[in-house]
Amino acid sequence: MIDRLLPIVASRWTRLVLVGLVVLGLQTTLFTDVRPFGVVAQLMLLLAVAAGVTYGFEVGAIAGLTLGFMYDCVLNTPLGLCSLVFGGAAAAAGALQFFIREPSWWLKIAAIVGTTFVAELVFPFALTMVGIGGWVRPRMIFVALGVTTINAIASPLALIVSRWTLKVSLGN
């Protein structure tokens, strides 16, 4: 029984959920008070996109869907909406590896910046699509720029965290 449980507990996905909980804790406490440029930093989105950039399309999509679902659970918006947006963003970021086999660090950061910006713009449209209107306004461009700037600054750390979190085996 323990032999079966151990691989699950030690798996990268369990680690992702645990790290996700810690990051979500920071998101709902520190980053609701600390609002650089007047916007809320999107750490869960950053972690998801960083996972995509580091490990590719498939791992990124699963990480994005998982982290997005966790974020959905603390938000007032429909459950599953962030999951879809984050999953899509992380998968898009992971598509970088289709074009460049071993992207340099600045290309990874550029991919994070680009996908973050698009995801932040897509989210209000997704809200409108499910009937929650009122968010598609010029302000969303300012929000997207703010979040993108924060994510660009924090992306080197996010890449390190995502690399460690989703490593196949911690011993490697």
Binding site: I62, T66, G68, F69, P78, G80, S83
Partner: peptide, 17 residues
């Protein structure tokens, strides 16, 4: 897994609405 998660998300959005 991706398909399952995406489908679950869509179902959850529908159920939540």
């Amino acid at each position: 897994a991706i398909a399952l998660l995406a489908l679950t998300s869509i179902i959850l959005v529908t159920l939540d609405l």
